[in-house]
Write a protein that binds this DNA or RNA. Structure first.
Lengths: 224, 224
DNA sequence: GCGTAATTTAATGTATACGTTATCGCATAC
DNA sequence: GTATGCGATAACGTATACATTAAATTACGC
């Protein structure tokens, strides 16, 4: 099987490790880290670290600041806004394309499943499993749109706001409305209603954006 | 002045050089190039070449295939379609945001200038200078939208289709209609007509996409 | 004491060395 | 003639060495 060497190269390992460390908060937003530090931490030389940080910089997770180390990016409210505007636009497009795809109920099964999972998670107020089903829903939506470049951008931006979402997950009200929107979107896609799917998802994302920003302001978070 | 060291680092130089070589066709689409070859060609060691190729891979201009060298990406009609769908969507959004910006005539001067430059280029049928003014127009449009992440994506995608545009520039009919659309878009932005700006630019891009695809099919280009 | 120049330190950028391993050629078996 | 396996080659991944230079520190003049 052995896809190729890059799966196991130290550079690839460094990319994934550093990503995990960022998402887990072990490399906190706003902190600086020298190449040496990272190299030692991951038990490798600077070479793969350098290659990995360049890749992660291209992905917008950190910036390389010579002699200051790499800085894990923080997100201001404006950053969040920028990202959400693009996400809203592209995911709405994805919703429209998914509807245009004229998929059979069979093919839409995973999407429906995630909607139902979200609903049952809500009934028992399990936010974590709701969030995980929500992620599956959005991933599946993007997959159905069938545009790999669009998918890459969306995935990348989701990575960038992951921290913020995790942070607000337990601060926000139970996403009851969100769930209704998901089901409505599923139905629009199922009946091939491109315009409708677009519109529904647009509003869905707008609501999500507003909720997020409102919470961050309420809690007084300027950066995340 | 001296922004910072990265401006002059060999890695940065390699990124820019390789980009140029790709755009100029010296590194032709579909061809493979070993790290050694590139290193020798650019008179540097493999280290900066490796870092540069990783960055360019993240930008979607090439893929790194261990032991086969880096492959300069070709674009199939489907790729082109994927890219144009995203470009259309994001630039339309940009047009809407630019209109929402309520800019003064003064602030819109560069945009207007590029429209006029396109018009005068067309009168003398100078396609090269038309293309350059067209690029300025689109750049300015994106700048006015004021979303740096959106700008980055658009710029990146434009890079990816640059070859295709250059290729068709002299094959397409004189872009008379395109010019009318540019002026109409300028006016929509000037009067703050967000919806109108969106709609106009959407159609503009759709037309461009169709023209491009039609030419490529006509000429029988499967890959570029 | 305070500001500036000289010195030291250390982080980076780059080259190079080297071990690993995919790939290719060739020999051998069938 | 084709297939299988072995050895040579070379490209890559990674570590390391070293030169460069920004930043920190110290020394110095005032």
């Amino acid at each position: 099987m052995q896809e190729n060497d890059r799966q196991t190269s130290r550079t690839q390992l460094a990319v994934e490790s550093i990503r995990s460390l960022i998402f887990s908060g072990d490399l906190a937003a706003g902190t600086d880290h020298l190449e040496n530090e990272l190299a030692e931490r991951l038990s490798m030389s600077r070479t793969p670290i350098r290659e990995a940080t360049r890749v992660l910089e291209a992905q917008g997770l950190l910036v390389v600041r010579p002699r200051k180390g790499v800085r894990i990016l923080t997100l201001s409210a404006e950053d969040m806004d920028e990202i959400y505007v693009v996400l809203t636009e592209l995911e709405s497009l994805a919703a429209g394309l998914a509807a245009r795809g004229k998929y059979t109920a069979d093919q839409l099964q995973p999407l429906l499943q995630s909607v139902e999972d979200m609903e049952s998670s809500l009934e028992v107020e399990d936010r974590e499993s709701w969030a995980s089903a929500d992620e599956r829903f959005h991933d599946e939506l993007v997959r159905l749109a069938g545009n790999s470049r669009m998918a890459a951008i969306i995935s990348n931006f989701n990575d960038q706001v992951r921290r913020a979402r995790a942070f607000t997950l337990h601060l926000r009200p139970l996403p009851l409305q969100s769930n209704e929107e998901h089901r409505a979107l599923y139905e629009a896609i199922a009946r091939g209603d491109e315009k409708g799917a677009r519109r529904i998802h647009w509003r869905h994302r707008e609501n999500a954006r507003k909720t997020l920003i409102a919470i961050l302001e309420e809690v007084g978070m300027k950066h995340l």
